[in-house]
Simulated assay, not measured.
Amino acid sequence: MSTVETAVPILPSRDLSRAEAFYAYLGFQVARRGADYLQVTHGEIELHLYLADDLDPLVNSAGCYLRVSDPARMRSEWCGDGVSCLEVPGSEPYGETVFAVVDPDGNTLRYGPVSARAGSRV
């Protein structure tokens, strides 16, 4: 029996060029790009975005949780650059979330520490 080693979120985007620029600012690099699909990576993190022309960012409920080595430092740096880093109250039962960022398409990226993985089963 094979085991699952990783999962890759697939998020909607109305404008893949704008998404590419946004994620590049966050430190992601383009792995592949097509007319209607974008794959970006940041270390071991991989995100895919697909073109969704009819997406309404105000009602988009898509998102993902990203485990990073030092989310507090990341938040401090990004806030210093003017990135809106949001509080996520009440998230503790599901794994520590230090902050969240919403991309231009309404996708919510929640950031927490790598250590949040230890011992958690949801």
Rank of each mutant, 00 (worst) to 15 (best):
A52D: 10
A72W: 09
T6M: 11
F99R: 03
G82I: 03
V122L: 15
V101Y: 04
C85L: 07
Y50S: 04
C64Q: 01
L51I: 02
G106W: 01
V114N: 11
T108H: 06
G82R: 08
G63I: 02
V98P: 05
A31D: 11
H42M: 14
H42L: 15
P12Q: 06
R110E: 09
R73I: 11
R73F: 10
E46N: 13
L11P: 09
D15S: 10
E96G: 10
R73P: 05
E5V: 15
R67T: 03
Q39S: 14
A7W: 04
S91Q: 14
D53E: 15
Y50K: 04
G90V: 10
E92D: 13
E44T: 13
S84W: 08
D81E: 15
V59D: 00
G106H: 07
L55K: 07
A72G: 03
E87S: 15
Y50G: 10
F99N: 02
W78N: 05
A118P: 00
S84T: 15
A21Y: 04
G112Y: 01
I45T: 12
G43F: 03
P89V: 10
I10M: 12
E96W: 02
R110Y: 09
A116F: 00
D53K: 14
E46P: 06
V114G: 03
I10F: 09
E46Y: 02
S17I: 11
D81T: 09
P57K: 05
D81R: 12
C64T: 12
D103K: 07
L109T: 00
Y37L: 12
R117T: 08
R67M: 11
Q29E: 15
G95K: 08
V59S: 06
N107S: 08
R18D: 01
A31R: 12
M1S: 11
P93E: 02
M74C: 00
S91D: 08
G95Q: 02
Y37G: 09
S2G: 14
D15V: 05
T97G: 09
V83Q: 03
F22S: 00
H48P: 09
F99D: 02
L55N: 10
T97K: 10
Y50C: 06
T3C: 08
D53N: 13
P57N: 08
S120P: 00
D53W: 05
V4Y: 00
A72M: 11
H42V: 09
H42F: 12
V88G: 05
G112V: 02
E77Q: 15
I45Q: 05
G95P: 05
W78L: 14
L38C: 08
L86N: 09
G80S: 12
S69I: 06
Y65M: 07
D70R: 15
L11Q: 07
A116D: 11
R67W: 02
V68H: 11
G80V: 05
G82F: 01
P71Q: 07
L26D: 01
N107Y: 00
P57G: 12
E44R: 15
G80L: 04
D81G: 12
T41L: 06
R18Q: 06
D70Q: 13
Y111Q: 03
N107W: 00
L49T: 04
P57C: 09
L66P: 00
G90M: 13
S115W: 05
D103W: 02
R67A: 13
F99P: 08
G119M: 06
E96F: 01
D53M: 13
L38W: 02
R117F: 11
L109V: 03
